[in-house]
Amino acid sequence: MTREPEAVYQSPPANHALFRKIYVWELPVRFYHWLNALCVVALILTGLIIGRPLAISYSSEAYQQYWFGWVRFIHFVAAFIFFFNFLARIYWGFVGNEYARWDNFIPFKGVQWREIVEVLKVDILQTKLQKLITIGHNSLAGIIYFMTFLVALFQAITGFALYSSMSASFFPRLFAWIVPLMGGDFAVRQWHHVFMWFFVLFIIVHVYLVFYHDYIEGRGTTSSMVGGWKFQREDELKRK
């Protein structure tokens, strides 16, 4: 067993290399991801309807229908699931594997900042991938997910604050203090609505970048969130 010297290392063509399966996304992470996706989509759709109700069915009387009530009901149920699913993910950030750990999301280290610059170059300037990107969340994705967490938290807090006036249960009441802090229900609703658009933009960019990185990295980015596996070239692993 001789160690291959760094200097003479020649990477073989991509279609020749050996790939190793790496279990990146554990089941709780995947479960969180898809439940979260479902909730966010449901929340955006019902939220848009609540913000601007459709003009449908004016032929029947009020006692014969309850559709707007149902839309709001779905919004509230999805909100609760969204929030507790989020809490579960935070917990998993402390007990999960190295790819799920909380420190993936906050760039503490110089390595992470260099990777952010690298990925920005690759994503925006479409330069060729020079260095190997982390097999888990790349550092740019990590920090953006962190911002998404903050927005999610904001949405949850403002949402429950709005909900608190219609609920007698203790949990939403915990957030009632937000309302006077932000200057009344109107302001809370307004900001809750504004930040909804963050998720709309996020979804567009996120889904696209998954496809894009699947192509430039060739490591099964898209399918990884279904099966949990990603692929790393054997020789790259050795190099690390």
Binding site: P53, L54, Y66, F68, G69, S165
Partner: peptide, 20 residues
């Protein structure tokens, strides 16, 4: 309580019947 919660038009809100 909110004006909305004690409003006599509240049933129209839940039924999704709105003035356009």
């Amino acid at each position: 309580r909110r004006v909305h919660d004690t409003c006599y038009r509240r049933p129209y809100y839940d039924a999704g019947l709105f003035v356009e």
